[in-house]
């Protein structure tokens, strides 16, 4: 029952969020600010994770399939496939749910408990739209860029690890990265990314928006935002994979 209540209220909130903005200009400016806060400021962590993840995939692939029957370029191929298909869109989105989701829930939640959302409502502003729409749009616009950067850096990280440790030659690695490439997997991956971005921003905003109580509850909302975003991302990942790849 509680689940149904939350799902119902979540979609009603989204209805509010996507109703006509009062002032497009104000909303757009807020969207740009959010892109900076939620996207650009996540670049560092995404870059770091991606480099190391690619490096680890490369080394593990090499050590696990060290057989003369398997061609050397398989390392590059494996790094590319696992990065583009799952690591960048899904794992990085899960990480972003932790970083961005908790930020969103905490910000909106503390505005709620400090009566700032009431203040918006009382001015006649559509508080849900004003606060949440720019965040959803910002994440949906900027996350694909973050994920593309992540893909590039992860593959680059694999190359660095492979060549620096000498387990694979640069030429073999690049051959693997280019082997049997189907651009559709990038499309698939970016579709997932956008869906995950909307999930992160909207679920976290929902948690923040319906916070009641004080600062302790803001903390709880922020944790819930991350947990629920993660769970929904995993479910959506499964469904999208079935839908887009089968």
């Amino acid at each position: 029952m509680a689940l149904l209540f939350h799902i119902g209220r979540y979609f009603m909130l989204l209805g509010e969020v996507f109703s006509k903005p009062e002032r497009l200009k104000v909303y757009w400016r807020r969207t740009l600010e959010e892109m900076d806060l939620l996207g650009v400021k996540s670049l560092g962590i995404v870059a770091l994770l991606s480099l190391f993840m690619g490096a680890v995939i490369a080394i593990q692939t090499k050590t696990n399939i060290d057989s003369p029957l398997i061609p050397a370029y398989v390392v590059g191929f494996t790094v590319r496939q696992s990065t583009i298909l799952e690591f960048s869109p899904t794992i990085i989105s899960l990480i972003l749910a932790g970083k961005v989701g908790s930020t969103i829930a905490a910000e909106i939640g503390s505005m709620r408990v400090r009566e700032q959302i009431d203040a918006l409502d009382i001015m006649g502003v559509n508080s849900a739209g004003y606060l949440i729409l720019p965040k959803i749009v910002a994440c949906a616009l900027i996350n694909p860029f973050l994920i593309m950067i992540s893909m590039f850096l992860s593959i680059f990280g694999g190359w660095m690890a492979g060549t620096l440790t000498g387990i694979i030659s640069s030429a073999n690695y690049i051959q693997g990265v280019q082997y049997d490439f189907d651009a559709y997997i990038v499309t698939y991956s970016l579709i997932k990314t956008v869906v995950f971005a909307v999930i992160i921003a909207s679920i976290s905003a929902y948690q923040g928006y319906y916070t009641t109580g004080g600062t302790r509850e803001v903390g709880i909302s922020s944790t819930k935002a991350v947990v629920y975003s993660d769970v929904v991302i995993l479910i959506a990942n499964y469904l999208l994979t079935q839908l887009l790849l089968l």
Partner: peptide, 20 residues
């Protein structure tokens, strides 16, 4: 209608509720 009406309401909250 509520939103229209509220554009004509000014309110000071006990907590001030400024946007921080």
């Amino acid at each position: 209608e509520v939103r229209q009406l509220r554009q004509e309401i000014g309110m000071l909250f006990q907590s001030s509720a400024l946007f921080d």
